[in-house]
């Protein structure tokens, strides 16, 4: 039993970590080297996706979904790029405040009116896409390079990026370890039972959407920082990718389960796939196709994993 128990435990709970390790090895083999610069690029790119995916994850835990997180990131990055050069304090606070308000709006619409989350956020997605273009019609604005050094490190320094990635995963892990986190899982497990047990279901759900908006806005700020400027459409690519990262991290969309670190791992996997394809000289046209296959593979492998476990148990 113990002979199979060990690999089973390794594979069972660290499935996404193993996929990541395989992809990383492939990348290193392809490139022939893996420098501090490579690590930094990976971490910074993953960081942007991870933040939005972590926001998405909090919402998915309640059996919801949020399509507006990407555009929220666009608006927040655009606002930051416009304001921060003139007024640093406002440049940091305004995007954060915007994220909170946009998330709160989603939450209030979902909980208050009782519309399905996918409809509400489809509407707000469109609204924030439009707002981003109004704020910043063309890519522009500027974020002084000082912020880049401070928040994500210089070009050859991977540490700040890596630590930030882990730190944000840690912060969301902490959120989940509180009573709020437990209530979030309870709602995802059985909303009616949670309500009857005395959980403030409406409040918890609104908070989840608000925190989702906040995390997305911070993700948008990282985007503006790493580009040193804003772009009104930069977040669009994250609308569905953020959901994909949650799934690739092994969180079932039915809600209630999963861990934030797994979501960070999911973001890393999707990010490394992109660079892998680049170095394998695969046309970027295939990127989306291959992302889809990876999604199926990882989501399907959870099923395969349970199947294998079943066989082993027999």
């Amino acid at each position: 039993m113990s002979a199979i128990a060990v690999p089973r435990r390794l594979i069972g709970d660290r499935w996404s970590a193993i996929v990541f390790a395989v992809l990383l090895t492939l990348l290193i083999l392809l490139k022939g080297r893996f420098t501090a610069f490579d690590l930094r690029s990976l971490c910074v790119a993953a960081l942007q996706l991870a933040l939005i995916a972590l926001g998405q994850y909090l919402i998915i835990l309640t059996r919801g979904i949020d399509l507006s997180l990407g555009p929220i990131a666009s608006v927040s990055g655009a606002v930051m790029a416009i304001v921060i050069a003139g007024n640093p304090a406002l440049g940091l606070m305004l995007p954060v405040a915007f994220g909170l308000c946009a998330g709160l709006l989603n939450g209030v619409l979902v909980v208050g009116i009782g519309l399905p989350p996918i409809i509400v956020t489809l509407a707000t997605m469109s609204i924030w896409q439009g707002a981003a273009l109004m704020v910043l019609p063309d890519p522009g604005g500027s974020v002084p390079s000082f912020y880049q050094a401070f928040f994500i490190g210089g070009f050859s320094s991977p540490y700040i990026g890596l630590v930030s990635l882990l730190a944000w995963g840690g912060i969301v892990s902490w959120v989940l370890s509180t009573r709020f986190g437990l209530n979030l899982r309870a709602i995802g497990g059985d909303e009616l039972a949670a309500e009857m047990s005395g959980v403030r279901v409406r409040g918890v759900k609104i908070t989840a959407y608000t925190l989702g908006g906040l995390l997305a806005a911070i993700g948008g700020m990282y985007m503006a920082i790493s580009m040193s400027s804003g772009s009104p459409t930069v977040g669009d690519g994250y609308i569905l990718t953020s959901i994909a990262a949650v799934v690739v991290g092994g969180v079932p969309l039915v809600g209630g389960r999963g861990s934030p670190l797994a979501v960070v791992m999911g973001a890393l996997i999707l990010t490394i796939t992109a660079s892998l394809l680049f170095f394998a000289e695969v046309s970027s046209f295939y990127q989306s196709l291959i992302d889809g296959c990876i999604l199926l593979l990882v989501a399907g492998s959870a099923g395969a994993r349970d199947f294998i476990r079943g066989l082993v148990r027999k």
């Binding site: 899982r185 059985d190 949670a194």
Partner: peptide, 8 residues
């Protein structure tokens, strides 16, 4: 009708 969350 039970109000426990079965997943937890």
């Amino acid at each position: 009708e039970l109000t426990l969350v079965r997943e937890l």
